[in-house]
Nucleic acid binder design. Structure first.
Lengths: 87, 87
DNA sequence: ATAGTATTTAGACATTTGACTAAATATACA
DNA sequence: TGTATATTTAGTCAAATGTCTAAATACTAT
């Protein structure tokens, strides 16, 4: 839980998640979308991976990143308790 | 948006939100629930206030904190785009 | 007015974070 | 084998974060 909120607490990482909504991407393709060095993006991807928000799959010399939306369900559950609050 | 994710990225602050689900509380009452100094809790409350996740209302010498769940709707919307992802 | 309670503000400090460059690893291909 | 490409790991550094104590502010009541 902690790690998920941490992973989401960064605009770059949230942007990456949104980009992956459209299509799976290699680390290199993701890097091209930002004015941030490769190693920095790699670090962001690592955090997203730790939070299980993305999955990495090696394909030849590329590594494809894709969304793993199952963790979103868990987070949503946490938020839902606030939605059902009686006023 | 940024400030909301930031506010949520701390176990103490999330715990405070959960506590406020049950009842409105004064800063002092909240402090009693943690092994953290008053000023530190005050700072956490300030962040939650900035994110508009809580509302503070002065009542005599006390300040009552209560949930403001409308921001939750906005966050939920952000998460929903990932729920509707086709596989 | 004075003292006591509730809370915040200010300032200091250690830890965490996000960025960078340089180096390491892994794969592809000539 | 040797070189180019893709990506990560390692190490450094400045800025942000969470904690604390001390001091300031605001209200209550004697």
């Amino acid at each position: 839980m902690n790690i998920v909120f941490k992973a989401l607490n960064d605009p770059t990482r949230r942007k990456i998640l949104e980009m992956l909504l459209n299509k799976d991407m290699t680390a290199g393709e993701i890097v091209e979308e930002f004015n941030i060095s490769g190693p920095s993006i790699s670090h962001h991807l690592d955090l997203l991976k730790q939070a299980k928000l993305v999955v990495a799959e090696k394909e030849g010399q590329f590594i494809y990143y894709s969304l793993n939306t199952t963790v979103v369900d868990e987070i949503m559950k946490w938020f839902l308790q606030f939605k059902s609050k009686k006023k």
